[in-house]
């Protein structure tokens, strides 16, 4: 049973700001459904007693002292920007989302 349908793909595409044609949505829905089914086998193997893993090595508290270190100059910071103005990155006007 596919967990992903065409509407889910369209929704995800919108969130990811990716334009997709109808054909692409159909194809992707099928492919993603196969992938989701494949991943499902993991949850069959791992029972409720196995905690979700976000990191392969069981480390915790890798912390840094609160001391100022490396800083870029404004020129360096903006050097990779496609466009800049008044010391700031210049980006196209985007509808309000904050």
């Amino acid at each position: 049973m596919a967990a992903i349908n065409r509407d889910d793909v369209a929704h995800l595409a919108r969130l990811a700001h990716i334009e997709m044609t109808g054909d692409e949505l159909d194809r992707m829905a099928g492919e993603l459904a196969v992938i989701v089914d494949a991943v499902k086998s993991v949850s069959e193997a791992a029972g409720a007693d196995v905690p979700a893993t976000s990191h392969p090595i069981p480390l915790s508290n890798v912390l840094r002292e609160d001391v100022v270190g490396h800083v870029l100059s404004q020129e360096q910071a903006l050097s990779g920007a496609p466009d800049a103005q008044s010391g700031r990155f210049r980006v196209p006007a985007i509808l309000e989302e904050d």
């Binding site: 270190g69 800083v71 100059s73 910071a77 010391g87 700031r88 990155f89």
Partner: peptide
């Protein structure tokens, strides 16, 4: 480790 300072010139604390 960039500084957390208010009011500086833009993009100088990054």
């Amino acid at each position: 480790s960039a500084p957390n300072v208010f009011g500086d010139e833009p993009n100088t604390n990054v």
